[in-house]
């Protein structure tokens, strides 16, 4: 196989972890962005490209790592030029737009990979495998929690721009809840403080309760706390025969207790590629593309996650649970996508 040419659109926080993975995979990189592309190009030896359409022309795979509101537009532009697309979550701002992108990819005969990286974190993948293997019997109740520092970039705080703590942060656990327990029948959500005039407050906390079509109930909590908060996630799946759980706060795989000079911040060692879920994710996408097989996450999964997030915002606005239409996860492109 000749060297894979990959174009990154966007040079924000998530771009570097994708770039790390591409470099580890030996891809030839291109990058374009309204800001910060020069630094990425220099740091990773990528070629700097002046605009999105020029970048699309140069590459085999387009990797969209821009603010969420722009995902669908860039994806459609790349798809129209016959490029395979990796798109950071959420796939689009609305389920309708996500479905449009998915349909466009199917029509154009290109692959579309929504980047839900938590599927590539072994602690979650192990729970999924345990559920699938019947280790905990019939699944009944799930809990997910995700909290850390509030982001600093303004678009995260506009729901119209694809931001918000549910659509940006909790969407990871929405995808996990659906991965573990299947499609969602109804969604109830609350948030404190509320979003007023499209200004998402920070700090902010949100709770979402999902009722899955098979009767499983899931609680999801996500919070953006003040800057500097350590990042924590936890998950528990309980079934008729047992339970499986993981809590990052109890993860002692590596811990340093040390006397350090005052003012020293937490030292985070660089993640080795073998340990990086982003590497595993992108490697899976590349292999799926090469072998013409399904990836661990499909466009339909990306649509479903966006649909649940959208329903959560509708629930908050209406102060009541919101039922999801049964068509969402039965997108016609599903089978077509899988067959290719």
């Amino acid at each position: 196989m000749s060297t894979l040419k990959v174009g990154l659109i966007g040079a924000g926080g998530i771009s570097r972890v994708h770039a790390d993975a591409w470099r580890a995979l030996g891809a030839q990189g291109y990058v374009t962005s309204l800001a910060g592309a020069e630094e990425i190009a220099e740091e990773y030896g990528f070629e700097l490209v002046t605009d999105v359409d020029a970048l699309i022309e140069l590459v085999d795979i387009v990797d969209i790592v821009t603010p969420s509101s722009t995902h669908a537009d860039f994806a459609l532009r790349a798809i129209r030029r016959g490029r395979d697309v990796i798109c950071e979550k959420p796939l689009a701002a609305t389920a309708e737009a996500a479905t449009e992108v998915t349909q466009a990819a199917a029509d154009a005969g290109v692959r579309l990979f929504p980047a839900h990286v938590v599927r590539y974190m072994d602690e979650y993948a192990q729970i999924k495998a345990g559920i699938e293997a019947g280790r905990i019997g019939t699944l009944a109740v799930q809990r997910f929690s995700r909290a850390g520092s509030a982001p600093q970039t303004p678009w995260f705080f506009s729901e119209r721009a694809g931001g918000g703590v549910i659509r940006d942060l909790m969407i990871h656990d929405i995808d996990q809840a659906v991965w573990f327990a299947g499609p969602v029948a109804s969604v109830y959500a609350v948030q404190n403080p509320p979003t007023v005039d499209d200004r998402v407050p920070a700090p902010v906390t949100a709770h979402v309760v999902l009722t899955h079509r098979n009767g499983v109930i899931s609680h999801l909590h996500a919070s953006w706390v003040a800057p500097g908060m350590p990042f924590r996630t936890s998950v528990e799946a309980a079934g008729s025969e047992g339970r499986l759980r993981y809590d990052s706060a109890e993860d002692n795989a590596l811990r340093t207790d040390a006397v350090v000079p005052e003012g020293d911040t937490d030292y985070l060692p660089p993640m080795s590629p073998e340990e990086s879920p982003y590497y595993a994710e992108i490697a899976d996408f590349v292999a799926a593309l090469r072998d013409g097989r399904e990836a661990r996450v499909s466009p339909a999964d990306g649509i479903q996650a966006v649909a649940v997030a959208e329903a959560a915002y509708a629930s908050i606005a209406g102060g009541a649970p919101v039922d999801l239409p049964t068509t969402v996860s039965h997108s016609p492109v599903d089978a077509e996508e899988a067959a290719r």
């Binding site: 109740v141 009722t211 009767g215 499983v216 109930i217």
Partner: peptide, 9 residues
């Protein structure tokens, strides 16, 4: 607001 089920046991 509450949801419940009887899957466990």
């Amino acid at each position: 607001r509450a949801v419940s089920n009887s899957i466990l046991h």
